[in-house]
Design a binder for these strands. Structure first.
Length: 306
DNA sequence: AACCTTCCCTGATGGC
DNA sequence: TGCCATCAGGGAAGGT
């Protein structure tokens, strides 16, 4: 489930290897992921040069000469470079214990839904098992780009992410804070894993309503979100099953997770067993000792209450 | 309007 | 061995 840190890891890995490349051909697989007619995509993209690679939230933006090609990796999207002189791994390797999937370089298979071929011989492969990914083609006009991303909220790790703009996004709502974090019009790029991690970092129970949060708790969350995202980038992204970077390698941040996927294991801060509940149809992990339901833990003396 | 639920999709997994 | 139900979840769409 690529979230901001995973998409950013891919962007950084891809950037030097695709920017400047001339697109000589395109091949599409499943049409479901294409949000533009296949013929139009193929015709529009062929012959253009990749001028830049950008990111907004979980979207990757390939800047071409006359278009933006925008990709969303959905749940299982993988974007890897294939070098002509390198040998393909014969198949994906799944570790028997960790379940991690990896391959140094893989040949396209029936889950590879988009291939961009470059004049250099290099290729860019978009593989997406569950087909929740999306491919958009935008005309290269500032207004078009702005309209396309208009529904997205604050970009964390950017200068526009300020406490003032953050606080304005709350309002007097009954919505649960976990649900708000998953809403891309709040802070763009936060998904299920980093939402849980940020709430743990901020000491806020995921079932708390937005309106119940105190000012100081919102400030804690404001700090926690970029902190957990930056940590994810630093460790090369979180690989639970499907995430691989542009080289086909798994990330390392899964080892650093404090609550996500640690149901029943002791909290690393207080020792309480981590609990799992469902909020907004998403598995939600938290520490009942460290994450207050009522905002009582301001002066966290690390009370052992569990 | 605000919030919640359902649905899309595939592969891994567990029960029988 | 095979069959079936269940689960994972980003985000759009439908429902209350």
């Amino acid at each position: 489930m690529p979230e901001l840190p995973e998409v950013e890891t891919i962007r950084r890995g891809l950037s030097s290897r695709v920017v400047g490349q001339i697109i000589s051909g395109v091949r599409v697989g499943a049409r479901r992921i294409l949000k533009v007619p296949a013929q139009r995509l193929v015709r529009a993209v062929r012959g253009q040069v990749i001028r830049g690679l950008d990111r907004r939230g979980k979207f990757l933006i390939f800047e071409l000469d006359r278009h933006y090609c925008v990709l969303h990796l959905g749940m299982t999207g993988q974007l890897t470079v294939r070098e002509p002189e390198q040998r393909d791994a014969s198949r994906f390797f799944r570790h028997p214990i960790t379940g991690l999937e990896r391959a140094r370089q893989h040949a396209p298979d029936h889950h590879t839904h988009l291939q961009l071929f470059f004049e250099s011989g290099r290729a860019l492969l978009f593989r997406d098992v569950r087909q929740f990914g999306k491919v958009f083609l935008l005309d290269k006009k500032p207004a078009t780009r702005i309209r396309f991303f208009a529904h997205l909220g604050l970009e964390p790790l950017s200068p526009e992410y300020t406490l003032q703009s953050f606080l304005q996004k709350f309002g007097n709502r009954k919505l649960r804070i976990k649900s708000l974090l998953l809403d891309q019009s709040f802070v763009a790029g936060v998904g299920n894993i980093y939402a849980d991690e940020a709430l743990f970092e901020a000491g806020i129970h995921p079932r708390r309503t937005v309106r119940s949060l105190r000012r100081w708790e919102k400030e804690q969350l404001f700090e926690a979100i970029p902190a957990v995202l930056q940590r994810g980038i630093t460790w090369g992204g979180t690989t639970l099953r499907d995430f691989v970077n542009s080289d086909g390698e798994a990330g390392n941040h899964q080892e650093e997770l404090k609550v996500y996927g640690r149901t029943g294991q002791p909290c690393l801060r207080c020792g309480c067993p981590i609990q799992r509940v469902v909020i907004s149809q998403r598995g939600t992990h938290f520490c009942p000792g460290c994450q207050s339901r009522r905002g009582f833990l301001k002066h966290r003396a690390l009370r052992r209450i569990c």
